[in-house]
C-alpha cells in the first residue's frame, strides 16, 4: 500500500452514468489485475474504493458509476485536479490458475477490472473469451477496447439491444466457449449463477461496503468455507469454492 497524489488526466462520461477516469502520478506503482485503489474525496469522510481497469507504473485507468453522493462528487472533478489515493490494495486475480483458455465474465461495471486481467492472460499466450453483460445498449463500456486486445468477445443485454438477449449465462450457453478456468466480476446474483452453472473452477471479485479498505478495521468481513475473510485484503477476489452465497 502506498499513499500517492495523482493528477486527473481526464474524467469523461462514456456510458449511462458511467465515467472513465484517467490518472497520472510521478512515483512508481505496481498494480496487479483485480486490485483496487481507495480515493479521498473532498467533503466525504471515507475514501471511495474503485477497482482498477488498467494501469502502468505511473498511471491508472478507472471506471465508476454515479450511484451516490461520493461518486457524484467524483463526476464533477476536472483534469489537473489532484487526488490523494491509496494504491495497490487487495488480492487480485491469479492468472496462473488458468492453464490454456480463460472465460472472463463481467456484469455492468464489473467489466472494467477484467480488462487488465485479459491483457495479462493474452500476454501469457492463453486463449481468452470475454462475456460482458449489461442491462441495455446505453450502459455498454469497453466493447472496442476488448476487441482491440484480440479477445473473443460476446455481449449480452437484458433488453436485447446489443448482442444476445438475456444474461451472461445465456450468451455462454449459446456460444459454448472453451475454457479451463473462469474469472468473474459483477453483480452478486450474476456471479452466484455463474459459479453454480460453470463446470470449472474460477475466481469471483466481490464488492462490500468498506471502512479502511486495507485490512485493519475488519469492516468488510464475510464468512467463507475457510473462515472469516476480509473482502478488502484477503479479497476482493476469492476462489469459487471458498464462497458461501
Amino acid at each position: 500500500m502506498q499513499k500517492i497524489f495523482f493528477t486527473i488526466v481526464s474524467n469523461q462520461v462514456v456510458a449511462d452514468k458511467t465515467y472513465r477516469l484517467e490518472l497520472g502520478c510521478s512515483q512508481d506503482i505496481a498494480i496487479k489485475p483485480g486490485q483496487f485503489v481507495n480515493i479521498a474525496i473532498d467533503g466525504k469522510y471515507l475514501r471511495r474504493p474503485i477497482s482498477v481497469s488498467d494501469a502502468t507504473n505511473r498511471s491508472l485507468l478507472l471506471y465508476y458509476k454515479v450511484v451516490g453522493e461520493g461518486t457524484k462528487l467524483m463526476s464533477e472533478m476536472n483534469p489537473g485536479q489532484q487526488l490523494e489515493i491509496l494504491t495497490e490494495l487487495g488480492t487480485g486475480f491469479d492468472s496462473a490458475k488458468c492453464r490454456n483458455s480463460a472465460l472472463l465474465v463481467g456484469g455492468g461495471l464489473g467489466t472494467a477490472p477484467l480488462y487488465m486481467l485479459c491483457k495479462e492472460l493474452l500476454s501469457q499466450g492463453k486463449k481468452v473469451t470475454v462475456v460482458l453483460g449489461f442491462n441495455k445498449a446505453s450502459e455498454v463500456i469497453l466493447e472496442e477496447e476488448y476487441k482491440a486486445l484480440g479477445a473473443e468477445l460476446l455481449i449480452a443485454t437484458m433488453d436485447g439491444s446489443v448482442g444476445v438477449k438475456g444474461f451472461t449465462t445465456d450468451a455462454i450457453n449459446q456460444y459454448n466457449p472453451e475454457f479451463d478456468f473462469f474469472y468473474t466480476c459483477g453483480p452478486m446474483p450474476m456471479m452466484r449463477a455463474l459459479c453454480a452453472a460453470l463446470p470449472t473452477s474460477g475466481e469471483a471479485s466481490l464488492e462490500e461496503r468498506m471502512g479502511c479498505g486495507a485490512g485493519y478495521c475488519y469492516g468488510c468481513t464475510i464468512q467463507t468455507t475457510k473462515g472469516p475473510k476480509r473482502v478488502c485484503a484477503d479479497g476482493p477476489v476469492f476462489d469459487k469454492e471458498d464462497l458461501i452465497w
Binding site: K44, Y45, L46, E208, R209, M210, G211, C217, Y218, G219, C220, T221, I222, Q223, P228
Partner: peptide, 23 residues
C-alpha cells in the same frame, strides 16, 4: 468471534458508524 453481518460501516458527516461486532 465472527462479529456482525455486513454492512458493518456507515459513512456520516464528520465520521462513520461501525458495527463490526468484536470480530
Amino acid at each position: 468471534r465472527f462479529g456482525n453481518p455486513t454492512p458493518r460501516i456507515a459513512e456520516c458527516t464528520g465520521g462513520l458508524i461501525n458495527s463490526v461486532g468484536l470480530q
